[in-house]
Design a protein around this nucleic acid. Structure first.
Length: 430
RNA sequence: GGUGAGGUUCCCGAGUGGCCAAAGGGAUCAGACUGUAAAUCUGACGCGCGAGCUUCGGUGGUUCGAAUCCACCCCUCACCA
């Protein structure tokens, strides 16, 4: 089978929500190296899973010989994108946004090759936005925008029409800023394609129009589908909140586990979205899983591929080591070094407090971050869901931390493997 | 500036003097069943091992007793100007 064209591949993966004239886009992409961009607004100090698909998209284009620009929204992040948001957003201070912008820059640069000559570009829209004065903005840029058109955009419609909500001028202006980015990137780098989540369609078309008006050029846009889960819940969330790409915020082990727990109904789609495996290969995996009774392989493959992509081989190895040790059901094979390694690999770990006499387990485990409240621990204790070093711990031992965590009951006189529920593990050490 | 509608526990949303830690739904967590899946059933779901403690925009007040009544204030929205 011959290699698919980029667009064919993206289509096969279900990665295209909408595009401007597909014919023209295909032709454009076939005509040589295209420069494209995708923006990432600094709304936190790290990107999360929601950003991963567009980020990988840039990479996909790069693999097909195009030149990606990752744009950090140092300016737009100060304003806040209203697209499909139900409520006005809280403005973050300039310092914070600045700081977050730097974080994102660092993170993105680990992902895409920026250093090869003529390779990808990392930009920040603050660079060309911060020094535009109001009057120039209004006269040179604002003049190209029709308010009638702006308010009819689907992305802000609910904010304008919905009772009980409104939109500030600040956020309303966002689409102008983003359009200006496209215009600027077109001018500076000959950027002719903008990609983004499907919620960005309005902003993208706005930019396309501005480029046409100001630069007299016809450029393109492409949006990616919103990643949904089969059960309707939000993708990319765990108990602890968002799944971050920063290993300090979400450990590679937790990251690996997240993917491993993907429901069957989603896993093959996710393989197409989040990995670079050929679509044909993914379909083969699906067929094999179906032919075999019982547990599918897809989750494991997905977890390995994505963890490697985001955190690298070493981190993946660590995540697998922990998983192997904790979920094999047999902890007896672990030696003292293995326990130490678990911690190094990113298994959550805490030191056992010195004074245990009056410390209930509920408090101890809550403070270690195993659960968010004593109530949860209590519930788990009642249901025999708390296991310390392979021994089920019941509620009546709640006040018995001193014995449970004594040197005598420790593994190798130091370690305690605490399990809450089926999946939550925590290492305690003396 | 005027008029009207609102601000309830993570979210939606009931509750208009005691029976309210506050209905119902969602989300979440745990148990059974499984495959670290889904579906289903069960339990938990402000905090606390517990006695108990702290909530219903804010501050005061009325009352034996307030999320519920009163006053003032803050915030949001809509319409009008």
């Amino acid at each position: 089978m011959s290699k698919l064209s980029l667009i064919e591949d993206l289509k096969a993966r279900g990665l295209i929500a909408q595009t401007t004239s597909e014919e023209e886009l295909v032709e454009h992409l076939g005509s040589g190296r295209v420069t494209l961009y995708c923006g990432f607004d600094p709304t936190a100090d790290s990107l999360h899973l929601g950003h991963l698909v567009p980020l990988l998209m840039l990479k996909r284009f790069q693999e097909y010989g195009h030149r990606p620009i990752a744009l950090v929204g140092g300016a737009t992040g100060l304003i806040g994108d209203p697209s499909f948001k139900a409520q006005e957003r809280q403005l973050n201070s300039a310092e914070v946004v600045q700081d977050w912008s730097n974080c994102l820059k660092r993170q993105i640069s680990q992902f895409i090759e920026f250093n090869d000559n003529g390779g990808a570009i990392l930009a920040n829209n603050y660079d060309w936005t911060s020094n535009v004065d109001v009057l120039s903005f209004l006269r040179d840029i604002g003049k190209h925008f029709s308010v009638n058109k702006m308010i009819s955009k689907e992305s802000v419609k609910q904010r304008i029409e919905r009772e009980g909500e409104g939109i500030s001028f600040t956020e309303f202006t966002y689409q102008i800023l983003q359009s200006y980015d496209y215009q600027k990137l077109n001018e500076l780098y000959d950027c002719t394609l903008q990609i983004g989540g499907s919620d960005q369609w309005g902003n993208i078309t706005g930019g396309i129009e501005l480029v046409r008006r100001m630069n007299g050029r016809s450029v393109h846009g492409l949006t990616l589908p919103l990643i949904t889960k089969s059960d309707g819940t939000k993708f990319g969330k765990t108990e602890g909140g968002a799944v971050w790409l920063d290993p300090k915020k979400t450990s590679p082990y937790a990251f690996y586990q997240f993917w491993l727990q993907t429901p069957d109904a989603d896993v093959y789609r996710f393989l197409k979205f989040f990995t670079f495996l050929d679509v044909a290969r993914i379909e083969a995996i699906e067929a094999e899983d179906q032919a075999r009774e019982g547990r599918p392989e897809a989750q494991r493959i997905l977890a390995e591929e994505v963890t490697r992509l985001v955190h690298g081989d070493d981190a993946l190895a660590g995540a697998r080591r922990i998983t192997e040790a904790l979920f094999s059901g047999d902890h007896s094979t672990l030696d003292a070094d293995d326990y130490a390694q678990l911690q190094l690999d990113g298994l959550p770990a805490s030191q056992v407090p010195a004074e245990l006499a009056d410390l209930p387990l509920t408090t101890l485990l809550t403070e270690a971050g195993v659960a968010t409240s004593g109530k949860q621990v209590k519930d788990a204790l009642q249901r025999s869901a708390v296991v310390i070093n392979d021994e089920v711990c019941s509620l009546d031992r709640n006040m018995d931390a001193a014995t449970l965590f004594s040197k005598e009951s420790a593994r190798f006189e130091r370690f305690f493997l605490v399990k809450l529920g089926k999946k939550k593990h925590h290492l305690f050490y003396l």
